Amino acid sequence: MRLRRLTVAAAAVALTAVAAPARAGDATTPPGVVTVDVVGVNGSGCPQGTAEVAAAPDNTAFTVTYSNYLAQAGAGSGGTEFRKNCQLALRVHVPQGFTYAIARADYRGFAHLQRGAYGQERANYYFQGDAQTARSTHQFNGPRSDSWQASDWTAYTDLVWAPCGEDRNLNVNTELRVYTGSSNPQDLSFMSMDSTDGSVSTVYHFEWKRCPAAS
């Protein structure tokens, strides 16, 4: 697959608005340029060319923006339409002497759920060669027809750090599911993690620390 490197400008304002406040004792955000390369894309929620990745210019986070990520149920939806997923393999290039972990992830989209229907957003992320982290699940119940948001936080003591001095892919997995539940199966319910204008993005917040000095 052709390697893609995407620019940072489009997500700058949104990333600044949602960046988590710094905690006492955190490592200084590294100087220089952090880039994120997409080295693998797979899943029904992100057909080729429908997922864009951008690093924040202040090195605090990166965004993933989807343009065709929608799960639906009812109203004659196909048997597999109730579940959509996306698996991204990302190569994060960081300044020498630093390593990173994902401290928080913010997921956003739109949900139209009939009374009795419900939708779920699931996610996890892990480094190539490491065991997968626990998959978080957020549920949204109908009736509702509005934007949704969910966040996953990791305590500092539980952070999983990229190995210093090694190039390991960061694997990011997400999933949407919609169930008709007790709603009328002829009524459509859906849940998306996309935006027609590109303004809705998933945001992954970095935590930084310095690598041990070579002996």
Rank of each mutant, 00 (worst) to 15 (best):
residue 53 V to H: 00
residue 81 E to H: 05
residue 111 A to H: 03
residue 136 S to C: 00
residue 128 Q to T: 06
residue 57 P to E: 06
residue 59 N to V: 02
residue 50 T to R: 01
residue 78 G to E: 06
residue 122 R to S: 15
residue 141 N to T: 15
residue 126 Y to W: 15
residue 104 R to F: 11
residue 123 A to D: 15
residue 130 D to L: 06
residue 98 F to C: 07
residue 92 V to R: 00
residue 119 G to P: 11
residue 52 E to G: 10
residue 92 V to S: 07
residue 109 G to S: 00
residue 109 G to M: 02
residue 71 A to S: 10
residue 57 P to G: 06
residue 56 A to L: 02
residue 100 Y to C: 03
residue 106 D to R: 11
residue 74 G to V: 09
residue 94 V to Y: 00
residue 57 P to L: 04
residue 72 Q to R: 13
residue 89 A to K: 10
residue 96 Q to G: 11
residue 99 T to I: 05
residue 87 Q to F: 10
residue 137 T to V: 15
residue 133 T to G: 14
residue 130 D to H: 07
residue 81 E to A: 13
residue 139 Q to G: 09
residue 135 R to N: 11
residue 62 F to S: 10
residue 88 L to R: 02
residue 84 K to A: 09
residue 124 N to S: 12
residue 119 G to M: 05
residue 127 F to P: 06
residue 137 T to M: 15
residue 73 A to F: 04
residue 68 N to I: 05
residue 58 D to L: 01
residue 60 T to S: 12
residue 73 A to Q: 05
residue 100 Y to W: 08
residue 80 T to V: 10
residue 79 G to V: 13
residue 140 F to P: 01
residue 62 F to V: 03
residue 59 N to D: 05
residue 140 F to S: 01
residue 62 F to M: 07
residue 120 Q to E: 12
residue 84 K to C: 00
residue 130 D to T: 03
residue 72 Q to F: 13
residue 121 E to D: 09
residue 56 A to D: 13
residue 64 V to T: 04
residue 97 G to T: 03
residue 106 D to G: 01
residue 132 Q to H: 13
residue 88 L to T: 05
residue 78 G to H: 07
residue 83 R to V: 15
residue 130 D to K: 09
residue 76 G to V: 10
residue 97 G to I: 01
residue 91 R to A: 06
residue 78 G to T: 08
residue 59 N to M: 07
residue 69 Y to G: 03
residue 67 S to A: 14
residue 112 H to V: 03
residue 129 G to M: 10
residue 113 L to A: 06
residue 63 T to L: 04
residue 75 A to C: 03
residue 110 F to I: 08
residue 130 D to M: 04
residue 134 A to F: 03
residue 101 A to W: 01
residue 57 P to Y: 02
residue 91 R to I: 07
residue 123 A to G: 12
residue 104 R to N: 00
residue 136 S to Y: 00
residue 102 I to Q: 08
residue 54 A to L: 10
residue 73 A to H: 03
residue 111 A to L: 09
residue 87 Q to N: 00
residue 96 Q to R: 13
residue 70 L to V: 14
residue 76 G to D: 04
residue 124 N to Q: 14
residue 124 N to V: 03
residue 74 G to L: 11
residue 71 A to F: 00
residue 116 G to K: 10
residue 119 G to D: 00
residue 92 V to A: 07
residue 61 A to E: 05
residue 125 Y to S: 13
residue 131 A to N: 01
residue 102 I to V: 11
residue 48 Q to D: 15
residue 130 D to V: 07
residue 108 R to D: 09
residue 100 Y to Q: 05
residue 75 A to W: 08
residue 103 A to G: 13
residue 86 C to L: 12
residue 108 R to I: 04
residue 78 G to Q: 07
residue 101 A to F: 07
residue 134 A to W: 07
residue 77 S to P: 02
residue 93 H to A: 14
residue 65 T to M: 14
residue 100 Y to E: 02
residue 96 Q to C: 05
residue 83 R to D: 15
residue 64 V to H: 11
